[in-house]
């Protein structure tokens, strides 16, 4: 791995991390607001996180 690739990988990880963090935070807020819907929120959260993760990995492999 040379320097640009490593920097690119780092940027990807930062982006994916921020995205997943935001999803998690929003889900926590939503659960706090509506605890009875926590199951549905968790499912939606996992799906969204999985999608971001998928893109992140695809980019990592491309880098």
């Amino acid at each position: 791995m040379n320097i640009p690739e490593i920097v690119g990988a780092g940027l990807i990880v930062i982006g994916a991390g921020v995205g997943i963090g935001r999803i998690g935070g929003s889900a926590m807020d939503a659960i706090a607001r509506q605890p009875e819907a926590s199951g549905k929120i968790q499912t939606a959260m996992l799906i969204a996180a999985a999608l971001i993760e998928g893109i992140g990995f695809a980019a990592l492999f491309a880098a």
């Binding site: 999985a50 990995f57 695809a58």
Partner: peptide
């Protein structure tokens, strides 16, 4: 399905 494949593999 490609993301399914990559996700499991990469994790």
């Amino acid at each position: 399905p490609f993301s399914l494949m990559i996700r499991l593999y990469a994790n």
